[in-house]
């Protein structure tokens, strides 16, 4: 009835969907290493272009990737600012004094207030915020009438700017690549791929099959548990728990009234499930045959060879250029 989707998988037909999850995971790994080998901003921008080409051929809408990047935007911005402000080598590209005066502080506060109340109407909130920040900084640097409250130097060096951009592009590449993997691979296939890749760990007594089974059961029960949590919330709301308000002490009680039933039901569930699994001849640690197999095809080999070539090229570039 209700449709809950676990993971980000969106159905599609391109070569990315036809690939073996193992080769996709390996390719992701190799390309990530490549991204870390690069040292130069121009090279990594070439790589970004390459990633964009993959997106294009793979038929993945760029907006989906942008949505994937959204949660880490703040992190990106923070890293960028940090890098820009604290790397102080290379030629100076901007040197200005930021001055806070009685008049422009007022305008600044006004701008922030306007931004706060209008941001919900603006489609791309992130760029709106950046625009407001840049605007305020420009004003502090150029428009300084009135009595001076405080002032400080803002100096940006070329290395700082380049370094910051470099790290940002690298992060974007990494996130984009992993988003490609999760968008084009069903959670179950991903799980199966990981299980097979981690199989060598069996040598050090880590049972990759058991881990994979645990993950698959977790995937299976996430929609059930979400549905259950919702019902518990409604049941407690029927007893007057108002989840929208309350003081801190009430909040604690509200959360307990959700968590305790959740735990009790889950324990009962896992008990039943363990019985059902045992009754169907499941013995932890025993060998199991599998209904799902992965088939490694020539296209997978081709992709891996290509990725290895990219890696070699990056190492060559790093060492000789």
């Amino acid at each position: 009835m209700k449709n809950i989707i676990v993971g980000q998988y969106i159905p599609g037909k391109s070569f990315l969907y036809k690939m073996d999850p193992r080769s996709k995971i390996l390719a992701l790994f190799i390309l990530m290493v490549s991204a870390f080998v690069f040292k130069d901003i121009t090279h990594i921008i070439y790589m970004l272009l390459g990633v964009l080409v993959i997106l294009k051929i793979g038929g993945i809408p760029i907006m989906r990737i942008a949505r994937g990047l959204r949660p880490i935007m703040i992190l990106l911005l923070f890293t960028f600012t940090f890098q820009v402000l604290f790397i102080k080598t290379g030629p100076v590209i901007l040197d200005t004094v930021l001055t806070l005066t009685t008049i422009n502080i007022g305008i600044m506060i006004l701008a922030i207030v306007v931004w706060y109340y209008t941001r919900r109407y603006i489609k791309s909130k992130f760029f709106y915020m950046v625009l407001v920040i840049v605007g305020i900084l420009t004003m502090l640097s150029l428009f300084t009438p009135g009595t001076v409250i405080s002032s400080s130097n803002l100096t940006i060096y070329e290395d700082g700017l380049l370094g910051a951009s470099f790290i940002m592009v690298r992060l974007i590449i990494i996130v984009t690549l992993s988003t490609i993997l999760t968008l084009t691979t069903k959670p179950t296939d991903l799980n199966l791929g990981l299980e097979r890749i981690l199989k060598p760990l069996n040598l050090v007594k880590i049972n990759s099959e058991e881990i994979a089974l645990i993950i698959s059961i977790a995937l299976r029960y996430i929609p059930t548990l979400l549905d259950e949590a919702n019902k518990i919330m409604l049941a407690q709301a029927s007893r007057g728990v108002d989840f929208t308000e309350g003081k801190f002490k009430d909040k604690v009680m509200q959360i307990i009234s959700l968590l305790v039933p959740m735990f009790i039901i889950s324990f009962k569930r896992s008990d039943d499930l363990a019985n059902a699994m045992e009754a169907r001849s499941f013995v932890p640690g025993n060998k199991r045959t599998r209904i799902h197999i992965l088939s490694w095809q020539s296209r997978d080999t081709l992709v891996i060879v290509f990725c290895l070539l990219v890696l070699t090229a990056t190492v060559v570039v790093r060492v000789y250029l």
């Binding site: 259950e228 029927s238 307990i256 305790v260 009790i264 039901i265």
Partner: peptide, 12 residues
Amino acid sequence: GLVFQFPEYQLF
């Protein structure tokens, strides 16, 4: 007053 199907949903 609404009582849900499973008492487990509310007893805590």
